[in-house]
Simulated assay, not measured.
Amino acid sequence: MSAVPALTLNNGVAIPQLGFGTFQIPPKDTREAVTTALEIGYRHIDTAEMYGNEKEVGQAVGASGLPREEVFVTSKLDNSYHAYGDALTAFARSLDDLDTPYLDLFLIHWPRPAVGDFTETWRALEEIYASGRAKAIGVSNFQPPHISRLLQKCTVVPAVNQIEVHPYLVQDDVRAFNAEHEIATEAWSPIAKGNVLTDPVLVAAAERLGRTPAQVTLRWHIQRGDIVFPKSVTRARVEENFRLFDFELPEADMAAITALDRGERTGPDPDTFN
């Protein structure tokens, strides 16, 4: 299988463009799922305190035999801990649960604009970053107005904005804003919880290229330059999702898939989710 390319974040940190997501994987299944992903060749694992499986992710990484520096680990701050002191405590708890001295990337999971001041939360992340306990810091589910507000007060520009992206929600406006500010875009729910996999455009492209609709969709993300981390607990699908770097989508297919955009979310609206 082909090696996964790395992108360089705005602070010089390298991040594998393809990772393994753990959202909605129950703790009892997480260790085995992450172990499988690492065996297949993934070197980027995405988790969050909100997922309830950080301990199991840490166990899998620790038991893998891989040097810690070879596995890029991301986690995220839960919504209940946006206060400055609470954020510092929650981060320390994530390190303990993951049994690691540092995270490669730590994100504010949701902006919660109607509840609190995420610029104060960001101040805590900047302190964590300065300490070296997070190699990079970023945000998740931030809209351009949220990031604009953050940029007015921050010292460290977020390295990443992790947002919902898939062919039915292409998010070109947010992606362009991120790029303008040298913030990498990560795409969660990359196949829209499977909703896009029966779309005739994706099915036709897959048949023509001898691939699956999931591979075509993930390859579309890769060619757009986003970082993507599909999730599965089935080994065959985890392997399938890794095989993205020995083919390329023609520009016509890229355009046709992008044209499927219908502004359709599978998750909450960041402007109203609290």
Rank of each mutant, 00 (worst) to 15 (best):
E69H: 14
P190W: 08
R224K: 15
I25E: 07
N274I: 13
D172A: 12
T119S: 09
S131L: 06
G52K: 01
A252G: 12
E251I: 05
N195I: 03
Y129N: 03
A87H: 02
E54Y: 10
F242R: 11
Q24K: 09
F273L: 08
V71Y: 13
L77R: 06
S189R: 10
L98K: 00
D29R: 13
K135V: 02
A124L: 02
I222A: 06
K76F: 13
L202R: 08
A184V: 12
A83W: 10
K55E: 14
N141M: 01
E49F: 12
F177L: 08
R243A: 14
T89A: 15
L151F: 07
V201T: 07
I25D: 01
G116K: 09
A87N: 01
S140C: 12
T198M: 12
D173T: 15
L105F: 07
P213K: 04
K135E: 00
I128Q: 06
V115P: 04
A124N: 02
M1A: 15
A192G: 12
D97N: 14
R43G: 09
T212D: 03
A87V: 05
D269R: 05
F72C: 05
T266S: 11
P200S: 07
D269F: 03
T212G: 00
G267F: 13
T100H: 10
L249P: 08
T258I: 12
M50P: 04
A48D: 10
K193F: 09
E120H: 13
N11A: 11
A205H: 10
P200Y: 07
A14N: 11
T185K: 02
D78G: 01
I40N: 07
F106W: 06
D97K: 14
R43M: 05
T30Q: 01
N178C: 14
T258Y: 12
D261V: 14
L18T: 00
E120R: 14
T119Y: 07
I227F: 04
D86V: 03
V165T: 06
T272G: 11
G116I: 11
E69Y: 13
L66H: 09
S2M: 13
E240I: 08
N195W: 09
L260A: 01
T198Q: 15
F118R: 03
V34D: 13
A184Y: 02
I227T: 10
A60R: 08
F72A: 03
N79W: 03
F177N: 04
R224G: 15
V61Y: 00
A134M: 07
A204M: 12
A6P: 05
G132F: 08
G65D: 00
V73M: 09
K193W: 06
H44A: 08
F247G: 07
D97E: 15
P230H: 02
L7G: 04
A90E: 00
A255W: 08
G267E: 12
L150C: 01
S80Q: 15
I25G: 03
K76N: 13
R262L: 05
E182C: 14
